[in-house]
Design a protein around this nucleic acid. Structure first.
Ligand SMILES: [Zn+2]
Ligand SMILES: [Zn+2]
Ligand SMILES: [Zn+2]
Ligand SMILES: [Zn+2]
Lengths: 137, 137
DNA sequence: TGTAATCTCTATAGTCGCTATAGGTTCAAG
DNA sequence: CTTGAACCTATAGCGACTATAGAGATTACA
């Protein structure tokens, strides 16, 4: 049996976050000690690590909750799990594309300032006028 | 004099967002009509466009507020403005790097599932075991 | 057994940048 | 003068936590 602090130490998930996951229904409320403190079975380590890994990969708690439901039913088709992964990948790729456009624009803006005063500052001018930009963002 | 709706239409910033910016101190409270509705001078277009452009480039409202302060003082050194731009660029680059690691990992995960059931699903297995990953994330 | 240090408990508020809703008032056109 | 669109304020909600306060539980050691 693990205390919440031990579970936290072994998974790298902070104590308040574990309580938050419980409140959100991602992990089942564990048994309690006589003094009302949470006591986890070793299996909770697996569950929580699954959630943490999903979060580290950028999945939403909603997607992780769906995947947990799916994982509990080994005979079922994995089409939904695969779809969640593909959709997330595609969202990540969209974010990368957007951030790359920003990076180009910001690199240009940040490198072009030759002035010493705000009055001449290209950063300020660029922000004041999107027409100076190469791209939409 | 512009109503908040006209200001919104001309800048692409939604009406509640304009009110939010006012509450957050990014734009000055405008004059009011007899019936207490906001009436903006044409200059508000410039201000709001500046804010919108900053947001479109991914700057935080806090950074934008700093830049607005700076922009009001043309004789001042632009070192702070340049620093804000460089720091933001660097934050964007960090995000891109992190997302690219995720992309690699997710591509691998999403493409490797050959099973038809959850029991064989590589997506579920990968989430259950970070040791299957190539990278940290 | 006493005590002190650490851990844990609940409940609540704050973070960021909005967005949505409710219930009311004002404005502009016909 | 009436209608309908636009506007007003205040409040709550989003996602995924994080921080705080004030109280109670557990553990280690003397
Ligand atoms: Zn400059
Ligand atoms: Zn631009
Ligand atoms: Zn699969
Ligand atoms: Zn991993």
């Amino acid at each position: 049996m693990l205390s919440i602090g031990q579970l936290s130490a072994r998974t790298g998930v902070k104590v308040p976050t574990i309580r938050y996951y419980e409140k959100m229904g991602l992990i089942a409320p564990p048994d309690r000690s006589v003094g009302n403190q949470r006591r986890y079975e070793p299996d909770a380590l697996r569950r929580l690590s699954f959630i943490k890994h999903g979060r580290d990969l950028g999945l939403s708690l909603e997607a992780i909750a769906e995947l947990i439901d799916l994982a509990d039913d080994p005979a079922r088709s994995c089409a939904d799990a695969d779809r969640i992964a593909r959709e997330h990948l595609s969202a990540v790729q969209d974010k990368i594309a957007r951030l790359k456009r920003l990076e180009r624009e910001l690199t240009r803006i940040a490198s072009r300032c030759t002035g010493h005063t705000i009055g001449e500052c290209y950063v300020i001018q660029a922000l004041s006028d999107h027409a100076l930009c190469d791209d939409e963002h």
